[in-house]
Design a protein around this nucleic acid. Structure first.
Lengths: 334, 334
DNA sequence: CAAACTTTGGCAATCGCTTGCCAGCATGTT
DNA sequence: AACATGCTGGCAAGCGATTGCCAAAGTTTG
């Protein structure tokens, strides 16, 4: 692999008969240099197939040109969409995306944050497992935007799932379900508490009976246990923390011969890839996940150079809606 | 955001009363320095919450500590498993993962490769759309490993899908299908040609009739057109380039009232997330995708420091098998 | 035509860390 | 006792870009 020394601005400078500083300016600051000189330099650069060293540039400028995206689990389709959103927007802005999987673990998250302090210009933190204090510390050290984890210390993108939870409850109510169970996500997840609170309140307002089981890991494989446990609550409808769990439950119900939606109804959350083609297709809370990723990037970039970005928003709330498919139906005996 | 100047080895050196070179060595090359000095330095470093600058380190050492992973489409679940695999292994080896979406476009891929020459220590190129010549050039410039794209110029990880394609054909044959259609992927995809060739050969050996339609974009949304077109071939069984297309076809058949597997059988490829819970569950060619990602990383790292890695392998072939579920059944009238 | 600007390009310091080379000292070897 | 070795740690030269400051040349202006 004979990768001969890469050309530097110095090589260009020599061939062009100018100083390196002129080359640097010609490339980064075109109007600072005479058009003829610039063209000459550009020509030589192209000819040498010159690529500036991000490293060296970063050293003097203090920026790395990279933004890190931290997600709890890269394989969770929910985060795919986030990543797709950030990827798009970052590329458009000329940034590189560093993808980090924090394995749903606080310490991994903290360690990543620490290392990245020098490696990335900013961080997008999806569904952080950190405490308020830890988040505040992190935000004080580096530009940060959180997704689905509100904090006073950093701009946040929230997907308004709780809002649609209420819709889901109404939907179930109108189908005659009086007793509903919420299938909770990981205890460390801020979202699951938020959703449960919204549900509780809405249920009591409508005089519906609601209970909670869990916590469950947000994977389809948790669905079996969740399904069994859910059945024991005696509820006729279940609202799952997310689609992964809901899909897992669907599979388990099928195994056990419990018919959906004839015997029980089930509502998922997120409308991830697969929610529309599982069996039966899942009624779920659809969220503009990808857009959340894009918005997070915008908010972060605005924070990075406040000059251009206008007033940086501190909070963006993404609208959601209930996507009714076939996993919900009339309560038995209705 | 008052991120006060970050501590450097110089700060540590001052407090420890040693030279910066000693600090550098204490941190990077522990046995090169007296134990007492080292401990002192380590203590101060911890106390200052020191994080070395990857940039500066890279400048002098010439390595960036980052590996780029290029995939044609981040939202394709197939690549997500690859990404999960690389992510795991890279983290274990202390590398950072740069994720780049090449948008199934040759020029985006080339440009990314160019930029990354200075930014990453090595590249993992999944399902590259490059020509042999372009690949050879890239491989000559930087350490490179390809996945599902064989080339003589770089180590390669291949998923032996063609092997299992033959199994799939046997399976269909034994169910009485005599006429099969292959639903092809993008023309620029090396894999689709490879699969089609394997199928053609196996079909002629077994005296089965095989035809091809396509190309189709590997998304579920292509499935509708694929399904309609597939039906017109008069075949009773279809083998799709990948699960995404297969799942899209499943949906379309359902819409059109074509029963699977009673009327037609369909085989997917990759066994991605969702293949087991779609309706009906998809018979597909299961591949150890995540392991392919891990293997690619190992091969790349072996290439990066040949000292440790032993003989770097030039080719790894991942075994596959046919996962029979419910989308295949006896041919009509059998 | 001189004073006052502008434009253009070079010099050199700097960013934070690594590393080759050397010197001082403690040990070990004849 | 003289000399070869081995440990440690400091000096200083990079790595490849950016940028403040300055000077020479070119333009405007009064």
């Amino acid at each position: 692999m004979p990768q001969d020394r890469m050309p530097t601005i110095r090589d260009i400078a020599e061939r062009a008969g100018v100083a390196t500083s002129t080359v640097s300016r010609a490339l980064a600051n075109p109007q600072r240099v005479n058009a003829r000189t610039r063209e000459k330099i550009e020509r030589i650069a192209a000819q040498l197939n010159y690529v500036p060293s991000t490293q060296a540039r970063g050293l003097s400028s203090g920026r790395t040109g990279a933004i890190a995206v931290l997600v709890p689990d890269v394989t969770n389709p929910f985060y795919f969409d986030i990543i797709r959103g950030t990827q798009n927007q970052l590329k458009a802005a000329g940034y590189t995306q560093l993808l980090v999987d924090t394995e749903e673990a606080t310490d991994v998250e903290l360690e990543a944050l620490r290392r990245l302090r020098r490696t990335a210009d900013g961080i997008i933190l999806a569904a952080s497992r950190l405490t308020d204090q830890q988040l505040a510390d992190a935000a004080a050290r580096q530009p940060l935007v959180t997704i689905n984890r509100a904090t006073a210390d950093a701009p946040t993108v929230l997907i308004d799932t709780p809002g649609a939870m209420v819709q889901a409850l109404e939907h179930l109510d109108s189908l005659g379900h009086r007793k509903v169970t919420y299938v909770g996500g990981p205890t460390s997840s801020w979202s699951t508490h938020r959703r449960w609170n919204a549900l509780q309140e809405a249920a009591s307002r409508r005089g519906m009976e609601i209970s909670k089981i869990g916590p469950y890991t947000p994977k389809t494989s948790s669905g079996a246990a969740a399904a069994d446990s859910a059945l024991r609550t005696g509820a006729t409808a279940f609202i799952a923390f997310n689609d992964l769990i809901a899909i897992g439950m669907l599979q388990r119900f099928r195994e056990r011969g419990v018919r959906v939606p004839e015997d029980v109804s089930i509502v998922g959350c997120d409308d991830i890839f697969g929610a529309d083609f599982c069996n039966p297709p899942l009624t779920t809370i659809a969220s503009p996940i990808e857009q959340a990723g894009r918005t997070a990037v915008s908010m972060l970039l605005a924070q990075l150079d406040p000059l251009r970005g206008g007033t940086p928003r501190k909070l963006a709330v993404m609208p959601t809606h209930l996507e009714i498919r076939s996993s919900t139906g009339p309560a038995p005996g209705h």
